[in-house]
Design a protein around this nucleic acid. Structure first.
Lengths: 329, 329
DNA sequence: TTGTATGCGTTATCAG
DNA sequence: CTGATAACGCATACAA
């Protein structure tokens, strides 16, 4: 397929309209221009089908109106939702999104950061699990769910509050003893606080609890092993489970049902994230919902804000509980 | 937050290395350069932390190594999967993706096409339902699931074959009478052929069938009305349903179950797309799986191909049946 | 207010 | 094989 060629430039428009190049530029950028000139220019633009060339502008000004967004993938519905809202928030501000999939791979993250700088992006938003990622100092950088330093703003939900809320809900729905399950990340990040909040509330409520974390490198089958080890004569040891993500919760529920443990009759389950099938239906499990739209708004407005000094280093946004069929209400 | 400033340029590197500007360019682009020169340049690059500026290159060459991808959203898991594979296919070829969400809105599609051209993209891939979209002639354009003209390549799954396969599977699994349900689009596009293939196979197999299409503007509740009207004394009129998308199938199954019709015991359901929860599990319904990765590959290799004349105007890729718990196997 | 001219960082063409 | 230099399209400082 052939490439666009000989697209008209401002010089062509100027010649056609019989005005100077600078005047065309001023018309295109909506600056003050005499009425008669503006009309001539606008006519010439229409006649030639002129479209302005952003690489010229970028080269001259250094601005691209583009933000790079680094995320593991869009397969996970939570990430997909985040991509969606980040894009909407950028669009509102006339910004474009350069989307980068890290696939949880450190090298790709590094390459993408480099690529983003080569492309003169105006800022980078990243959701990364890489423990020793080097943050470039010369381009605005904002992270999601991961604290790097006070000079790198971090946007997250109130993970601690979410864990706390989950414990209270399970108690409210009649659970006498509970457990927390998660796939552990080797690094301490914001989501780690889900456990902390849960434990804190269990202690406060005097509710017995147990913790199960699948460490890096442990096979996924350990989850099933854990579940089976708490199954005595067909009866499950816990009345409630709080699970680190909806994704894991979904998997655990499948395992429980295959073991003839009914959800929510025998055990109630609360997940975390707020995944909805096809984006608009009831959550797939009862869950703590992250305020994705607000997170996206905060990321974008922070990364585009002009003065680093006024930006908080951690922004925590409130979560909510939502019913998704795996609790008794 | 402050913006990057005074980043070193090729001229800085040249000065540092004591060579000419052109030599630096040749080193950066991996062209033939004398060993001693290359070393001096590479050292200077490292010393200054030089990163090449793509807007300069774009201005000079007209190439951006960027493809715009226009899609309704990433909320729908099928679209999310498509985004993922398109990006991977582009990445393999050292291309970036400029992602544009149309939200099914014609005006946004038009704006995005314009924006893409302003950004000098090397091509556009679009999945659009807009009946009278104007395709720019001067930039390579490829569509998914929607035929525009022989000069605009269209990539799609074998929708006819998928419908045909669904009918055969339902027959094989013991259905004596079936129905096809879909949300109709006002325009004839590739997915319309799902019905054609299904009908064709039903006739061929001598299997009685009925068609239900929710037209544009009809409320979604018509779906439920249709189901209830085929319910006589607790017994459902059809033994098998083929439904245009997994998304709709999921919704229909929910309605059926709320009417105490069991799936797959009372009625078997086959959807279309191949949505998997969290991308990696069993399909959420028994379904005809679209070859998303192959579609993405075909889109990218077509849009990047140099000679339009050699490109087919329609590429149909084979589909497969997959079990997802809503059929009797 | 409008015209003119310069330079942003790069590649490509020439001449050496 | 390398060095010098001219574009690429645009915004802007400066001159008119």
């Amino acid at each position: 397929m052939q490439k666009e060629k000989n697209a008209p430039t401002m010089a062509d428009v100027a010649r056609e309209a019989g005005v100077a190049l600078g005047t065309v530029s001023r018309v295109v950028n909506g600056q003050q221009v005499g009425e008669e000139f503006r009309i001539k220019v606008e006519e010439a633009i229409r006649k030639l089908g002129y479209q302005y060339n952003s690489s010229g502008r970028t080269l001259r000004t250094g601005n691209t109106n583009t933000i790079a967004f680094i995320i593991p993938n869009t397969i996970n519905p939570y990430f997909a939702l985040l991509v969606h809202h980040i894009n909407r928030a950028l669009e509102k501000r006339n910004c474009k999104m350069l989307l980068c999939f890290s696939e949880y791979d450190t090298n790709r993250e590094i390459e993408y950061i480099q690529m983003a700088r080569q492309n003169q992006v105006d800022g980078i938003i990243a959701l990364t699990y890489n423990p020793n990622l080097t943050i470039p100092a010369d381009v605005p950088f904002v992270t999601i769910d991961r604290f790097f330093s006070t000079s790198v703003p971090c946007i997250a939900s109130d993970n601690f509050g979410g864990g706390w809320l989950a414990a209270h809900k399970l108690k409210e729905f009649g659970c006498a003893n509970v457990a927390f399950m998660r796939v552990a990340s080797s690094l301490t990040n914001e989501p780690s606080k889900r456990k902390d909040g849960f434990v804190s509330a269990c202690v406060e409520l005097g509710m017995p609890f147990e913790i199960m974390a699948l460490e890096d490198g442990q096979p996924f089958s350990e989850i099933e092993t854990f579940l089976r080890s708490h199954l005595k004569e067909g009866k499950f040891a816990f009345e409630g489970l709080f699970i680190g993500t909806d994704s894991l919760a979904w998997e655990v529920i499948r395992l429980l049902r295959s073991m003839n443990i009914r959800v929510p009759e025998d055990v109630q389950v609360i997940g975390f994230d707020g995944i909805r099938m096809f984006g608009d239906q009831e959550p797939i499990v009862s869950t703590i919902v992250q305020p994705v739209q607000e997170i996206a708004e905060a990321c974008v407005s922070t990364v585009l804000s002009k003065h680093l000094s006024n930006v908080p280093s951690l922004i925590c946004l409130p979560v909510q509980y939502a019913y998704g069929g795996t609790t008794k209400e």
